[in-house]
């Protein structure tokens, strides 16, 4: 049984099938990448999996349990965490507070204790601070912990979101273009980080446009085009797949690519 199973998932917006009956599964300890040209429905698929949108068709299963239609905060309880393509950080908080918010589900103090500032509440906050600091360390942002998040660069915010998702202690991590806005060195760091996360047994699902990165770190690749899955397989199988090349480059480009290879 795979940790995350997607079956015939679909949604339409005003008659256009943004995601059309997509199925795939993702295993623990592996990186499963979802690729496809712009507008293929990758982020919409993420929003369906993470409960932001309600699916018209299909099912999402976590460890075999049907979680279709559950709201995002319940899915978070089941171990799902995600980052966002168009950044959903908390700009009024410091970088550290952003990540500490990711500890929400670990924190057990009640409202009254929080209002009164009881030791139980202060202990939880101290614990969260420790976890958040080590997560910031891990993504290379420890030196910016006290900065307001609004002062961080795009690439730094992408990594801040990863740190925030990591402290939840997730078992399924959805990463939406984590390397966007990163330079070559930073991309390499993100690459290593994702590797390390997967090695710890987390089921990582990745949307990424940097093909070199995708080919390097994915165990499994799912290709979307115009809402439908057009191919699925290991990186080397996808690299040479005619339909994938055609989707990215068009039929003419695919012919030229073939000619260049020959």
């Amino acid at each position: 049984m795979n940790r995350l199973e997607i079956e015939n998932l679909g949604i339409s917006f005003g008659g256009i099938k943004a995601v059309d009956s997509v199925s795939f599964s993702a295993a623990a300890g592996e990186v499963t990448s979802i690729i496809g040209p712009n507008g293929a429905g990758k982020t919409t698929l993420f929003n369906l999996i993470s409960g932001v949108y309600a699916a018209d068709t299909g099912h999402v299963r976590i460890e075999g349990a049907d979680v279709t239609g559950e709201p995002p905060h319940r899915l978070a309880r089941r171990g799902m965490a995600r980052t966002f393509q168009n950044l959903q950080i908390f700009p009024q908080m410091t970088a550290l507070d952003n990540v500490m918010t990711g500890c929400h589900l670990r924190e057990t103090s009640n409202l009254l204790a929080d209002l009164l500032g009881l030791p139980s509440s202060l202990r939880e906050t101290a614990k969260s601070r420790g976890l958040a600091l080590s997560a910031l360390e891990r993504v290379g942002l420890a030196n910016l912990a006290a900065r307001p998040a609004s002062e961080l660069s795009y690439g730094q915010l992408k990594r801040l979101e990863i740190a925030r998702a990591l402290v939840t202690g997730c078992s399924i991590l959805l990463l939406d273009e984590p390397a966007a806005g990163c330079n070559a060195v930073e991309t390499r760091e993100v690459d290593d980080l994702i590797h390390a996360i997967a090695d710890e047994g987390v089921c990582v699902v990745l949307i990424e446009h940097d093909m070199r990165m995708v080919m390097r770190i994915s165990s499994h690749i799912v290709v979307l085009d115009q809402g439908s899955k057009i191919a699925e397989g290991k990186p080397e199988e996808i690299r040479d797949n005619e339909r994938v090349i055609a989707a990215y480059l068009g039929a003419h480009g695919a012919a030229e690519a073939r000619a260049a290879h020959a």
Binding site: R77, R82, I89, F90, M93, T101
Partner: peptide
């Protein structure tokens, strides 16, 4: 700041 992000963290 972001109710989408907050709910994705379990809030």
């Amino acid at each position: 700041d972001s109710d989408v992000a907050a709910s994705s963290l379990g809030v």
